[in-house]
Amino acid sequence: MTTAHINTATHLGDSPVVIDIQGLNKWYGQFHVLKEINLQIRQQEKVVICGPSGSGKSTLIRTINRLEEHQEGRIVVDDEPLTNDVKQIERVRREVGMVFQQFNLFPHMTILDNVISGPIHVRNMPRKQAVDLAHSYLKRVGIAEQANKYPGQLSGGQQQRVAIARALAMQPKIMLFDEPTSALDPEMIKEVLDVMRELAEQGMTMICVTHEMGFAREVADTMVFMDKGQIVEYAPVKEFFTAPKEERSRMFLEQILNH
């Protein structure tokens, strides 16, 4: 294992690597959830991670902003290695936005307060400036009129768009999405994917765990297929959908596309 294979997007030329994961191993007690993960993600790259439930997709992207600790290996985000140093972790989290399956908006705050909470408390931004910023992001995700409502008064799709605005208001360099449409009714999936598509067009570096293969085919540069805690297949998006190398990813694709 001297020359571990590093998964890196050579097809994107030589734009700088913003996330560098090497030899990552993670256990939950005895259970080995992440096994020898090697992955590099470049600036403006869009990576879609897919794989069966329980394969460790969420765990992998949650190690990137240290919502989960890892036991072995090295993760460097935006030149900042992730260690136990709280300051370092907070610096990384400032540059990495995250959107959750369950939205996780703060129910006791208005939509506006949700969106300005990061800029005000973490970036020490003047309130007026934060409010202006929040309004511009809320407009971008199409929720401008609802700024003074509470999350409980919005539909799931609207809540998820607010969650995206809240993450964007921190002006991160990287966005992580963990199954952002899995908790949504079918008619609301599109409105969220549209927002993500637009974000991708504007050049955001994105890592999405999703089963929306249409979205993946359209937006992703790179596909990662995970199973049982390992990266089984890493491929440019065209290659992955037309000629998957691995038997397991082929079967998974068949299942999900014929479903």
Binding site: L67, M98, F100, N104, A167
Partner: peptide, 14 residues
Amino acid sequence: SKGQREAARALAMN
């Protein structure tokens, strides 16, 4: 809920 804590941490709150 745990998600609330995670969302707040993901925003880099201490």
